[in-house]
Simulated scan of single mutants.
Amino acid sequence: MSEQARDPELPGRLLLTERDALLPLLRNTPEEHFALRTACPGWTARDVLAHCAAALVRIVEGRLEEGVFSPGSNAADVAERADWSLARVLDELERGFTEAGPAIAAHEDGSLDTVALGEWVHAGDVREAFGVPGAYAGAGATPALPLLAVASRRRDTPLLHATLPGHPEPVVLGDPVEGRPTARLTADTSTLIRLYSGRPLVGTRYDLVGAEEHELVIYR
């Protein structure tokens, strides 16, 4: 995967793909499951979904004041929704998935593109908490990987070529570092996402040469 010009429609495609995959699962899951803890410290599945919904609707409504998406702002959004019914949280989430794509595309600098990636990773956090196989894979992986490539460059991770099943060409992530050879990773897509998002790696198999795990994490 070589670096390409920005596709402003890509984040929206990822969000719609995830909406169609995730919302039926959420609406058919017993409410007590939403109290399960996730890979996000201190957050239950319900908290993660409240954060995701709030972030997307902020984008839809243009409420992007200074400090938005900071840890404090995110915590305040979750707290604001603590007394909401689960149905209301899921309705807001569905609205965000449906409407945020065009709003993200309208930011010509691409500054919000990787928000869609974060939403998809958080959906994986919820699937993982629910015990759903392939939590960080599935249909959303195809539009998510180009967004991961963008995020890996913005976070100055080292240049890495990832060999993934079903991909005839290596996925290229990160930026060259002077005097340092290209790192190599052989893994499945789910493990690649876990590595770059700092999610637990228990039970995974991968071969990483030329980089350390901590150097790849894009969420710091």
Rank of each mutant, 00 (worst) to 15 (best):
A75T: 06
G179D: 03
L164P: 02
G42R: 09
W84S: 14
L208N: 13
L117W: 11
L64C: 11
L10W: 02
P41Q: 01
A54F: 07
R13L: 11
R199S: 10
A21D: 12
P165T: 07
C40Q: 12
D47M: 07
E32K: 11
V217G: 05
V177E: 09
A45Q: 10
A106P: 02
Y219M: 08
Y196I: 08
F97M: 14
L90I: 09
P41H: 01
D83T: 12
R37D: 14
F130T: 03
E65T: 15
L16P: 06
H161P: 04
A53S: 11
G174W: 06
L22N: 10
P168R: 01
S111H: 12
G12H: 08
L160Y: 04
A45Y: 04
R155L: 01
R81S: 12
V68K: 11
R155N: 07
A139Q: 14
E178P: 05
T182R: 05
L23I: 14
E9A: 15
R63S: 15
A123E: 03
D125N: 13
A141T: 14
T204S: 14
P170I: 13
A139Y: 02
E3S: 14
H107P: 09
L201A: 08
V121F: 05
V217A: 03
H33V: 08
T38M: 06
D156F: 07
P133T: 11
G138P: 05
